[in-house]
């Protein structure tokens, strides 16, 4: 997917550049979309769901994306003894 973006750079000079959306960005977006639909999910469930949707990405990158999204505060996690897994959710879905 090719996007044309116009945005100011750090010198406040408007720059137009061609940017292809990176796969990692797509993975992050997909995780957020999946969590919106699923409300909550384990890492295994998210990987399976992403694979079933035909994501063209190495599954090893999904946990790294989860850790990054968690770091950014876009998703949260709890440890579930019942599921023996980490449960990921969107902050607004918590409780």
């Amino acid at each position: 997917m090719i996007l044309w973006l116009e945005r100011p750079n750090k010198f406040n000079v408007p720059t137009v550049f061609k940017m292809s959306m990176k796969d990692q960005d797509k993975t992050n977006t997909l995780i957020l979309e999946l969590l919106k639909d699923m409300k909550e999910a384990t890492t295994t469930e998210l990987i399976k769901e992403a694979e079933s949707l035909g994501i063209n990405e190495c599954s090893d990158r999904i946990p790294a994306a989860l850790a990054e999204l968690n770091f950014q505060g876009l998703i949260t996690k709890i440890i579930s003894r019942e599921k023996k897994a980490i449960i990921w959710t969107l902050p607004e879905n918590k409780n």
């Binding site: 384990t42 190495c58 599954s59 090893d60 946990p63 850790a67 897994a85």
Partner: peptide
Amino acid sequence: NPHEVAILMDEMKNIFLRSGF
């Protein structure tokens, strides 16, 4: 899930390691 162990290892004891394939 090994990925979850890797995430927890980082959080609990600052152990940086790899998981997956």
